[in-house]
């Protein structure tokens, strides 16, 4: 309908999936994001759970920890790339010179401990990019 005004851009918070294996950090990240009005999926702490939830519910953007109880989160990153879901990496490691690390090229990395403002900015940038 030509006369109908363009729908205003929704000002809802993003739906963020948190992938983090350390429960206290997961809980903290969840609070950080909920405090600024984001909706949180998860948190999940294993590769399997992350893959499952990504399949079931499509988050807008993902906060991804790379080391999940000794398992590499690279399969999750690969899945997210395949589904074109943007993600931000939270990691104590700064370099990705391990097998499969190429998939992370271009992703923003937030070092640990995570600074709330930096994470929130990175998530919204990743979503808009």
């Amino acid at each position: 309908m030509p006369n109908e005004p363009a729908e205003p851009r929704q000002k809802r918070g993003l739906l963020v999936l948190i992938v983090e294996d350390e429960f206290l950090i997961a809980l903290d990240l969840q609070s950080m994001l909920e405090d600024v009005g984001y909706a949180v999926l998860g948190p999940v702490g294993t590769v399997d759970a992350a893959l499952r939830i990504v399949e079931e519910a499509r988050p807008d953007v993902v906060s991804l920890d790379l080391n999940l109880r000794g398992q590499s989160a690279i399969p999750v990153a690969e899945k997210l790339r395949a589904l074109e879901i943007p993600f931000v990496v939270t990691s104590a490691n700064r370099t990705f010179d391990f097998p499969g690390g190429e998939i992370l090229t271009g992703a923003t990395v937030i070092g640990k401990p995570v600074h709330p403002r930096m994470l929130i900015e990175a998530l919204s940038h990743a979503y808009l990019a």
């Binding site: 350390e22 206290l24 950090i25 809980l27 903290d28 609070s31 950080m32 080391n67 104590a92 490691n93 070092g111 640990k112 401990p113 995570v114 709330p116």
Partner: peptide, 16 residues
């Protein structure tokens, strides 16, 4: 890695 993790946990407890 563990030190950074523990720092994150410490930070989480302090913030929460």
């Amino acid at each position: 890695h563990r030190i950074k993790n523990l720092m994150s946990v410490t930070q989480a407890l302090t913030r929460q």
